[in-house]
Amino acid sequence: MRINQGCFSFLPDLDDTQIAAQIGYCLRQHWAVAIEFTDDPHPRNTYWSMWGLPMFDLADAAGVMHELRACREANPEHYVRVNAFDSTKGWETVRMSFIVQRPTKEPGFRLIRQETSGRNLRYTLESYAVTAATEGARYAG
């Protein structure tokens, strides 16, 4: 199952040239770019680990691509995404976010239906990944 989150999520994965072009667009808009990674891509997990600090005042996508390569090397079986923040109005607003790396195997999620009192239904998403495993080891093997 392919995890679909952020911009371009229903398109084929972007190659590095296309990623650099999107980062270039973000920088031309004067947005700060940040790189994040996780091994828990649950849709409600909005707090991924940040790779370094957000990159403010960059003029060239090469700096972001350098950090992206370092993040990929350090986290080969993690999800990695690029976020672009607009701080021009005095607050941080995510203007663009897209996944740039996925683990080799994406087990996905299953929908669990629970019937409760009064014929009400509750739905929960549960990862097929071994969520009891320690962080960083969920997609190993």
Rank of each mutant, 00 (worst) to 15 (best):
H30V: 14
H30I: 02
W31R: 02
W31C: 01
A32L: 05
V33F: 09
V33G: 04
A34K: 00
A34V: 01
A34H: 02
I35D: 08
I35W: 06
E36R: 01
E36S: 05
T38G: 04
T38Q: 06
T38I: 00
T38F: 00
D39P: 03
D40E: 14
D40Y: 10
P41R: 03
H42L: 13
H42T: 10
H42S: 11
H42N: 10
P43A: 04
P43E: 10
P43W: 07
P43Y: 06
P43T: 03
P43L: 11
R44L: 12
R44S: 12
R44M: 10
R44N: 09
R44P: 05
N45T: 08
N45Q: 13
N45H: 10
T46I: 13
T46V: 11
T46S: 12
Y47P: 06
Y47K: 13
W48M: 15
M50G: 11
M50C: 12
M50H: 07
M50L: 14
W51F: 11
W51H: 09
G52F: 09
G52C: 08
L53E: 13
L53C: 10
P54S: 06
P54A: 02
P54G: 01
P54D: 08
M55S: 06
M55G: 07
M55C: 04
M55Q: 08
F56V: 13
F56P: 07
F56W: 09
F56Y: 11
A59N: 09
D60F: 13
D60H: 06
A61R: 01
A62S: 05
A62G: 08
A62Y: 00
G63E: 12
G63F: 06
M65Y: 11
M65P: 04
M65I: 15
M65T: 13
M65S: 13
H66K: 15
H66M: 15
H66V: 07
E67I: 01
E67H: 10
L68C: 12
L68P: 02
L68N: 10
L68Q: 15
R69C: 15
R69V: 13
R69N: 15
R69K: 13
R69T: 15
A70M: 14
A70C: 14
C71T: 04
C71N: 01
C71P: 01
R72H: 04
R72P: 03
R72Q: 11
R72A: 10
R72C: 14
E73T: 13
E73N: 11
A74E: 09
A74R: 10
N75G: 09
P76R: 12
E77V: 00
E77D: 07
H78L: 09
H78R: 09
H78D: 12
H78T: 11
Y79D: 06
V80G: 01
R81G: 02
V82Q: 05
V82P: 01
V82M: 03
V82L: 06
V82S: 03
N83A: 15
